[in-house]
Design a protein around this nucleic acid. Structure first.
Length: 672
RNA sequence: GGCAGGAUAGCUCAGCUGGUUAGAGCGGCGGCUUCAUAAGCCGUAGGUCGCCGGUUCAAGUCCGGCUCCUGCUACCA
C-alpha cells in the first residue's frame, strides 16, 4: 500500500550557520525520506528557516541592516549547505512568510474561539524614557551570579547562568541607558490544562513517541497541572503582530513550528496540491525529526496547537541526541565546532552521511564523532568492501557486458534479495546502524565469493571466458543490490553505481531482479579514501591571522571571567575580609554541593556559613585550617538555614580552591 | 535531592517476551592472496555481562538494594 508521509526536520534558526551537529538531524531525516521515496511512498519533506525573535533583531541592528536582509542571506547559506550534503527537501520556506502569518492567524483564531487564550498582566522591565517594554535581550547589567558587568537580561555570557532580567544588578536599557522600571505588561497566554487529557493520551498511548520521551513527559509535566504558555512579546519584536492586538507579537516559539505547515502551503501552491490532504488527512502520516533540546515544544505545545487548529497530530516524533566529537561536547575553542562549510573544505559529504547512518540507532543517545572510527568506516566499509566489489570485477566485463542469463551463484543473490524487508524495517525504525550493518554482511559474502572464484585466474585461461563473465555478473549484481539498499544513505555513490550498470536506482525492489544481458560502462573511480590527517586538520582550531593576534597571549581563565571595571579604595574597603578558622565542618543533609562550616574569628566569636565546596573538600580536611572569610556579606536565608557571609574560593567550571593565609595569621585579622 | 536514561570484549554497540560453550563491526595478533582505490580472504586471542542479594531447574535477560556516568531539575554567596 502506498503511504502518504509528511516529514519535517526542525527549523534551523537564522542566527547561525549549519554545523555538524545540525547535520545529524538533517542527514538522518533525509535518509528516512529517501528510503520512503525509494519504497514508492508519497513523501513531502518540509523545512524552513526559523527567523523571528529578539536574537535576530539585535544582530541585524548590530550589523546595521534589516532583519529581512539578514534572514535572506542566512536562508541562502543554509540551503546551499544542505544541498551540498544532498538533503532533499521538497520545499524550504521561511517562518517570515505570508503563508506562515496566515496559518498562525488561523490557529490563533481557533485558540481564541475555544477560550484558550487568556490575557494577564505580568510585571516586566519598562524603559520609561522610550516608553516601551524591554525584552530580556534589551536589558543589560551586572550578572547576579558572577558579577560580570554588561550582560544581557536573560543569561550571562561569562558564567553561563540564566536568570530573570529583574535580578540583574544595576540594570539599564540598551536604548536609552536609563534604569528600567518594573511595570505591568499585557501578555497573552495559551491555556494547556484543558488539553491535559488529550495530551496525556497522545503522549502515552499513540505510539508517536519513543518510550523514554513519553516517560519524561509523564514525570515532568503531565503529573501536575499544565502551566499556561506565554506566547506574546511586546514591541519591538521581529515577528508577527498578533491580529487585533497592536504592539503585541507572537513569541518566536509560537510561529516557528507552524512553519512546517506554512512551508507545505507554499509547496502545495507551487505544485497544485491541496494542503489539507497533507495536514488534515487521517491517512497522511506526519513525522517530525528533532533534537532532544526542543522535545517539550514539540510534544506538548505543538500537538496542542495542532489539535486546536484542527490539524492532524504527528504520527511520530523522532528525537535524537547531540553530536559529540571524540568524546567531548563540541567546542569552538577546541576547534570541534565545525560548520558544514568547513567540513566541505576538508572532507566529502557522503562520508559523513554513511558515518552518521552507521552510528544512528532508534534511541535518543548522543552520537560521538570519533576520528579513527570515521576513517575506518569510510575506508574499510565503503571503499574496501562496497566500492571494491565493482572495482575488482567491472573491468573484466567491460567488453562483454553482463551474461545473458543469471548464473548459478549458490543462492547469494536470493539470500540478499530475501533480506530486503528486514533491512527496510530497520530503516523504517530509524535504526540505520542496523541497516548498514546488515548490508555490510552482504558485502562480506560477496567479497568471499570473489575470493573463491578468483576472476583474475579465470582471466588467464581463454577457455574460461564464459565463466569469467558469469562470475563478474554475479559480483556486479550483488554490488547492485547492495547499492540499492544503500541508496537512501549514499545517493551520490548510488548514482555512480547506476551509471556503471545502467540502473535507475530509484526503486527498492530493484534488488529483487538480477540485471542481465546489458552493457557495463567503463569503471571509473567512485569514492576517494579519507586521510586521518585531513579529519584532524578539520578539527584543529584555525590559526588566527597575524593581524588579529593580540600582543599578549590571551588568558583562558580571564576569558571565562573577565577582569572587572576599576573600583576605588573606598569601594574595596566596604568588603570586610577576615581570616577565619574552620572549627567544624559537616555535610548538609539533602544538599549535593554544600558543606556547613562553623568559623571562628578569635575568642568565642563564631559564624555559621554554608559553602558550595562539598565536591572539592572533605569536611575532615577542613577542620583547623584558616580560610578567607567575607565577614560583612549580608546573611542569606537558605533552605538549610541562614548563611552568614561566605568563604572565599577561586575556580571555574566546578573547580573550587579555597584561599589560605600564610602561616602566622590569626583568626579575626582583617585584610588590608 | 527529584525525574529520566545508561553501565556487556581495547573502541562503538546487539542481545526481543529468562534456556545449550555471551555476540557483531572496528582495532590487535598469525597466515594466505595480489583482480582491486596498499583493497580482499582465512584463522586467532580478548568479557567475574557495574556491585550485592533475591525469585527460578535455569538470569546480561525478572525483582530489591547499592555504586558510578549522562541529561533535565532544585538547593548552591
Amino acid at each position: 500500500m502506498t503511504r502518504q508521509i509528511l516529514v519535517t526536520s526542525a527549523l534551523p534558526y537564522a542566527n547561525g550557520h549549519i554545523h555538524l551537529g545540525h547535520l545529524v538531524e538533517y542527514l538522518q531525516t533525509d535518509i528516512f525520506v529517501r528510503f520512503q521515496r525509494l519504497r514508492g511512498h508519497r513523501v513531502a519533506y518540509m523545512c524552513a528557516d526559523d527567523t523571528h525573535g529578539t536574537a535576530i533583531m539585535i544582530r541585524a541592528e548590530k550589523e546595521g541592516r534589516t532583519p529581512e536582509a539578514l534572514i535572506a542571506e542566512m536562508s541562502e547559506a543554509h540551503q546551499r549547505d544542505f544541498a551540498a550534503f544532498g538533503v532533499s527537501f521538497d520545499h524550504y520556506g521561511s517562518t517570515n512568510s505570508d503563508a506562515n502569518r496566515q496559518v498562525a492567524g488561523g490557529i490563533w483564531q481557533k485558540l481564541v474561539e475555544q477560550g484558550l487564550v487568556v490575557e494577564r498582566a505580568v510585571p516586566r522591565l519598562f524603559d520609561a524614557e522610550k516608553g516601551m517594554f524591554l525584552a530580556d535581550r534589551f536589558v543589560k547589567g551586572t550578572c547576579p551570579r558572577c558579577k560580570t558587568p554588561d550582560q544581557y537580561g536573560d543569561a550571562c555570557e561569562a558564567c553561563g547562568s540564566t536568570y530573570p532580567a529583574t535580578e540583574l544588578i544595576e540594570p539599564r536599557s540598551v536604548f536609552s541607558g536609563s534604569a528600567p522600571q518594573l511595570k505591568d505588561s499585557k501578555q497573552f497566554f495559551v491555556r494547556l490544562e484543558p488539553l491535559q487529557q488529550k495530551l496525556t493520551e497522545w503522549t502515552q498511548q499513540s505510539g508517536a513517541l519513543q518510550p523514554e520521551v513519553a516517560n519524561y513527559l509523564k514525570g515532568h509535566f503531565l503529573d501536575k497541572p499544565l502551566q499556561d504558555w506565554d506566547v506574546s512579546r511586546p514591541k519591538p519584536y521581529f515577528g508577527f503582530e498578533i491580529p487585533g492586538q497592536p504592539g503585541n507579537f507572537w513569541y518566536v516559539w509560537f510561529d516557528a513550528p507552524i512553519g512546517y505547515i506554512a512551508s507545505t502551503v507554499e509547496w502545495c501552491a507551487k505544485t497544485g496540491q491541496d494542503v489539507d490532504q497533507w495536514w488534515r488527512n487521517p491517512d497522511c502520516e506526519v513525522v517530525h525529526f528533532l533534537g532532544k533540546d526542543i522535545t517539550y515544544f514539540h510534544t506538548l505545545f505543538w500537538p496542542a496547537m495542532l489539535h486546536c487548529g484542527g490539524y492532524s497530530l504527528p504520527k511520530r516524533v523522532h528525537i535524537h541526541g547531540f553530536l559529540k566529537v571524540n568524546g567531548e561536547k563540541m567546542s569552538k575553542s577546541r576547534g570541534t565546532f565545525v560548520n558544514a562549510r568547513r567540513y566541505l573544505d576538508f572532507l566529502e559529504p557522503e562520508w559523513l552521511r554513511y558515518y552518521y547512518a552507521s552510528k544512528l540507532g532508534p534511541k535518543i543517545d548522543d552520537l560521538d564523532f570519533q576520528t579513527e572510527e570515521f576513517v575506518g568506516k569510510v575506508n574499510s566499509d565503503l571503499v574496501g568492501r562496497v566500492v571494491n566489489l565493482a572495482s575488482r570485477s567491472a573491468k573484466f566485463v567491460e567488453q562483454t557486458g553482463l551474461s545473458a542469463s543469471y548464473p548459478d551463484d549458490g543462492g547469494l543473490f536470493a539470500r540478499a534479495a530475501a533480506m530486503a524487508e528486514t533491512i527496510a524495517a530497520c530503516y523504517e525504525a530509524c535504526d540505520f546502524r542496523e541497516a548498514t550493518r546488515l548490508v555490510m554482511t552482504l558485502c562480506d559474502a560477496a567479497n568471499e565469493y570473489v575470493e573463491q572464484k578468483a576472476p583474475w585466474t579465470l582471466k588467464k585461461d581463454p577457455t574460461k571466458a564464459r565463466e569469467l563473465q558469469d562470475v563478474c555478473t554475479v559480483v556486479l549484481n550483488l554490488f547492485h543490490q547492495i547499492m540499492v539498499y544503500l541508496t537512501p544513505v549514499l545517493p551520490g555513490l548510488s548514482a555512480k553505481a547506476g551509471a556503471l550498470l545502467g540502473s535507475a536506482m530509484d526503486y527498492w525492489s530493484l534488488a529483487q531482479q538480477p540485471l542481465v544481458g546489458r552493457p557495463v560502462a567503463k569503471f571509473t573511480h567512485m569514492m576517494a579514501r579519507v586521510e586521518a590527517a585531513r579529519v584532524s586538520e578539520m578539527f584543529t582550531p584555525e590559526e588566527p591571522t597575524p593581524a588579529s593576534i593580540p600582543a599578549a597571549a590571551p588568558s583562558p581563565t580571564l576569558e571565562k571571567e573577565p577582569l572587572q571595571p576599576d573600583i576605588t579604595i573606598d569601594d574595596f574597603l566596604k568588603v570586610d575580609l577576615r581570616v577565619a578558622e574552620v572549627l567544624e565542618a559537616k555535610a548538609v543533609e539533602g544538599a549535593d554541593k554544600l558543606l556547613q562550616l562553623t568559623l571562628g574569628l578569635g575568642g568565642d566569636v563564631r559564624r555559621n556559613v554554608f559553602a558550595g565546596i562539598k565536591k572539592a573538600y572533605q569536611p575532615e580536611q577542613l577542620v583547623g585550617r584558616l580560610v578567607l572569610y567575607v565577614a560583612n556579606l549580608a546573611p542569606r536565608k537558605m533552605k538549610f538555614g541562614v548563611s552568614a557571609g561566605m568563604v572565599a574560593a577561586a575556580g571555574t567550571d566546578g573547580e573550587v580552591y579555597l584561599m589560605s593565609p600564610d602561616s602566622g595569621a590569626k583568626p579575626g585579622q582583617r585584610l588590608h
